[in-house]
Amino acid sequence: MKLDTVTAEALGPDPLSSTEGVDRMSLWQRGEHGLMGLSVLLLILSGMALAYHQQAWAQVLIQCMGGIAGRHLVHRIGAIGLLVAGVLHLGGFLFSQRHRRDFGRVLLRPSDLTEGWRGIRSAFSESSPAPRYGWFTPMQKVQYWGVLFGCLLMGISGVWLWFPATALQLFPKWVFDAMLVIHAKEAQLIFVGFIIWHLYDVHIAGGNFPMNPAWLTGKMSAESFALQHRDSSVSGRLGEKP
């Protein structure tokens, strides 16, 4: 895979040498992330309102969305938003060299396992060697793939629930039931595993409080980057093996 060794010329100046900090997210990526975040927020609010419809807070939410039909509409608007974010993601991969480079860097490698383990060990013992994570930490990689497969699973099962009559004509009812339980349980998993975890990481963990500004400005400070990615030695071409 040559994706992560895209030429330096194509990437412009060394992000670490820049006084503004490390260039983490392109405008495209920030837009994609923003759209996805907004859509997921709508999906979670309207989805949890349905899943916990017997709770008073969920009933208030449903009333706020204009009743059960309004809730359905909000959920579908969120679904379309997420779909568009998915199309943008695919478009980035097809048309931007930088996005292809980032994709190459987010691929899981055996080193993620060894470096991740080293990271845990060094948290306990000062004598253990410090890990070297690179452009994406192993945790970020796991989260990326979790979100990607999570969204795919939610999208596919969501189609069943969006068009129940057609889906039931084409596939047996037990497939529908399986899709429904996948949709509901995967939503829970995404909520605790990715949303809460991600929000902790970018707002609290690694000295990010009040937040890692990369999602708005596209940049994070070189100090934070060095601290969180344990990789101040390499230049902007992070992710390459030292």
Partner: peptide, 30 residues
């Protein structure tokens, strides 16, 4: 196809078959 599967399905009950196992799997994962 509408009749191929149980109606009044309880995902927490083993009689739900595949749905029970999927729910259980997700529970463990979560």
């Amino acid at each position: 196809n509408f009749a191929k599967g149980r109606i009044h399905l309880n995902p927490k009950d083993k009689s739900a078959g595949i749905v029970y196992w999927i729910a259980l799997g997700f529970k463990i994962l979560t």
